[in-house]
Each structure stands twice: as structure tokens, then as C-alpha cells.
Amino acid sequence: MPAYTYVLESVAQAICAALGFTFGGGFNHGSFKEAFLATKKDGEKLALKVLRPGCPTERSDREVDAMKRCAHPNIVALIELAEFEHAGTKYTYLLEQFMEGGSLDDRLSSGLLDRKNVLALGDELIRALVHIAEKELVHRDFKPANILYAAAGGEALVCDFGIVRDLSKESLTKTFLLAGPGTPFFAAPEQLNNDKSLIDWRTDQFAVGVTLAVAHLGYHPYQGDGETSEQAILNVVSRRGPAEKFVKAIAAAKLPALEKMVARWPVARFRLPDELLAEWRKQGVGI
């Protein structure tokens, strides 16, 4: 695959020059923005995210609004939001914590998490989820790539509110679409079927459940023996329910909360965020 060309690099360089930061090059890119490393004079590293001009402003407005509303040790902090004019065009940029410890994706590439570490990770993610739910937000994109670490050995932080759903505002997703936005492998049945009325914090609960299952077991909860990850997604779409091998594996691992988190229907999952946190923690008692 050819290396990605950062089209907003000159803009990022100009922003860094204006702020007195050292430009450190691009490190990530998405549909709506590109991310660059910027280092302050005191050595603090920041993520500079420049929005592509003309990207859907309602989505980016909601992302920024969500990040402003969330202030939690397990959610990547928004430090500044501003506009910058460069070569006659106005750009919006964000400054966020730079997460030097990499992502959960990176960690999983070197091996699965054992029970103790998955219990700790679950606690961190569920605490973030409780906070997000309190703000009437649904992140809709919990997955290992969006779980970052400030430093090796530190706690996990959730990032990327790019497709956040604000339950206090009208949905931006068109009702006629077959599927709502999200990463299919981690998405809940209601997300994959675009059942908009069923989207709430329990949609994120499902994705956190899939993330934890993948981190501990290495496969999707709906993925039966000999099935591909694509088949697992289809099993979620058709609400087939968790595969037998998953149910057996988490029973053996003594992680019963995980089965309820990935139930087919929201009503069968944990109803309240605090209830989920309490049940998750019960699994760690005595270890």
C-alpha cells in the first residue's frame, strides 16, 4: 500500500509556527481530519488535528461539542479548538493530549490480554462509558484503534468522537440507510440495522463487550467455530446471538458480565451504566 500523503501538512506546519510549537509530522488520518504531532516549548507533546475544509460541519460540530462536554480521566481531553486562516482558506483545528503509549490495537498485535488485564481494561472503558452516557451521548465507535494509552503501563483513554450521537439532538443519520455509521466488526445489531430508535448507551455497551472479548479471546463473540469475521458481522445483523464457543470460553474465564453486554437486544443488556460497572467489578473480587 502506498504511503499516505498528508494534504494538510502545510496547514499544520503554519499552525505550529503561529503557536510557537515544533512540528513533528503526520501520524494519523481519517475521513474528516488529519492528525499531526506538535511539541510545545516546554516539551509537552500534543496531537494537532486539522479538519478538512468542507467536511460535514454538523458531524464535526457534534464531535467537538461532545469532547467539550466530556471531562474524564479515561477520555482523551480536548485542550483547544480554534480556526486558522491559511492561503485564503479557513481551517478548524483541535489540540488534544498526545497519546505516546499507542493504541489497544498495537498492544493486541503482540498478544491477547490475560484475565487480570482485561478486568482492568474493562473497568477503565466502562468508567469512560458511564461518563459518556451521563452526557446523553453515544460514542458509536468503541474499538481497539480508538482506545489509546498516554504512556506504557498507564490507563486506557477513549478517543475519536467523530460519529458521536447526541441523544438530546436530532439524529444526523438518514433513516433510509441500511446501516448506521460505525465500524461493523464492533457495532451492535441496532447500529448495523440502522434501528435508530434503539440507539442508546447500551449500543456502546455492546461495542465495549466485543472489544473486551477480542482483547481476551481473540475473536468476535458471535463468531462460531470455523466462521470468518465477516460471518460474525452477519450473525450480529441477524441477531443470532453469541456463539457457543464464546459462551463456554467466558464461563471458563469467569467473566459472565461479558455475555450480557453483547446480548442481541438492548433490553437484555445491562440497563444502567452503574449497574454494568458494579457487575463488571464483581468479577474481579477475590483475584
Binding site: 447500551r202 442481541r264 438492548p266 433490553v267
Partner: peptide, 10 residues
């Protein structure tokens, strides 16, 4: 029934 239950259990 499950859809209704999922909504009202919110």
C-alpha cells in the same frame, strides 16, 4: 416485543 421492550427499558 423486544424492540418495544428495548425502547421502554431506557
Amino acid at each position: 416485543a423486544m424492540t418495544i421492550a428495548s425502547i421502554v427499558s431506557r
